[in-house]
Measured scan of single mutants.
Amino acid sequence: LADDRTLLMAGVSHDLRTPLTRIRLATEMMSEQDGYLAESINKDIEECNAIIEQFIDYLR
């Protein structure tokens, strides 16, 4: 059971955070005209990261 939990934490961490990191990188490359959009996307990314952290904390 502990091994399954560790594997799940690693999978969640990698499989969800990697795309979020790519999205954040894309927002950094957006033009200044789209700053409001990038800010909104980054806020959503932070919310997703917080949910992931809560899930990982729960698994521990």
Rank of each mutant, 00 (worst) to 15 (best):
L20M: 03
P19H: 09
T18V: 12
I41P: 03
E28N: 07
G35M: 05
A50S: 09
Q33H: 05
L25H: 05
H14F: 00
N49V: 15
A38I: 05
I23V: 02
D34H: 14
D34G: 14
Q54K: 13
Q54V: 09
M9Q: 12
E46C: 00
E32S: 07
D44G: 14
C48D: 01
L1F: 13
D3T: 05
L25V: 13
L16M: 02
G11R: 13
T18A: 03
I41L: 00
V12W: 14
G11Y: 02
S31R: 08
S13V: 09
E53T: 00
N49S: 09
G11V: 04
R5M: 01
D34A: 09
D44W: 00
T21L: 08
N49P: 04
C48I: 03
I45N: 06
R24Y: 02
M29I: 05
H14Q: 00
K43Q: 14
C48Y: 01
R5W: 08
E32N: 07
L37G: 11
D3P: 09
F55W: 13
I52H: 02
L7D: 00
P19A: 15
S40N: 13
E28H: 07
L8R: 11
A10Q: 02
D34M: 12
S13A: 11
I51C: 00
D34R: 15
M29P: 09
L59R: 15
R17A: 08
I51G: 03
R24N: 09
T18F: 13
Q33N: 05
N49A: 02
I23T: 14
F55N: 05
V12M: 14
T18P: 10
Y58C: 00
R5E: 15
A38C: 13
M9S: 14
N42L: 12
L16A: 13
I23L: 02
D15W: 00
Q33S: 05
K43D: 02
M29V: 08
V12C: 05
I41F: 02
E39R: 09
K43P: 12
E39F: 15
S13D: 13
I56V: 04
S40W: 00
V12F: 10
E32W: 02
R24A: 08
L7Q: 05
L7N: 12
S31T: 06
A26C: 14
L8D: 05
E47Y: 00
V12N: 02
I52D: 09
R17S: 09
I45A: 05
G11H: 09
N49L: 15
S31Q: 06
I56S: 05
I23W: 00
E47R: 00
L25N: 02
K43H: 00
L8E: 05
E39H: 11
A26S: 14
D57F: 06
L16R: 10
R17I: 12
M9E: 08
I56N: 06
A2L: 11
L25I: 03
E46A: 14
N42V: 11
G35W: 00
K43C: 13
N49F: 15
E46F: 13
G35C: 06
I51M: 06
L16P: 05
N49Y: 05
Q33C: 07
E53P: 01
Y58N: 12
G11A: 14
R22Y: 03
M29G: 04
L8Q: 00
N49T: 05
P19G: 00
R5Q: 08
Y36R: 06
T18M: 13
E32K: 06
Q33R: 06
F55H: 11
A50V: 14
L7C: 06
T18W: 07
D3G: 05
K43S: 04
K43T: 11
D4K: 11
T6L: 13
F55R: 00
L16D: 00
I52W: 05
H14E: 01
A38L: 08
D57V: 05
V12K: 11
Y58K: 09
L20W: 14
H14M: 00
A10Y: 02
C48T: 07
T6Q: 03
L8M: 00
F55Q: 06
R22P: 12
I51A: 15
I41K: 01
L59D: 15
A10E: 05
E28P: 13
I45M: 02
R24E: 14
D34C: 08
G11W: 11
L7I: 12
L25K: 09
Y36L: 08
L25P: 07
E47S: 15
E32M: 08
S13C: 11
C48Q: 05
E39N: 09
H14Y: 02
Q33V: 04
A50L: 02
T27F: 12
A26G: 06
E53G: 15
I56H: 12
I56C: 03
R24L: 10
D3I: 10
S31W: 00
M30K: 15
M30A: 07
N42W: 05
E53H: 02
R22A: 04
T27W: 02
A10I: 03
N49C: 14
E47D: 12
E28I: 10
Q33I: 05
I56W: 05
L25M: 12
A50F: 07
I41A: 00
A26D: 09
L7V: 10
T27N: 10
T18C: 09
R17H: 10
A26F: 11
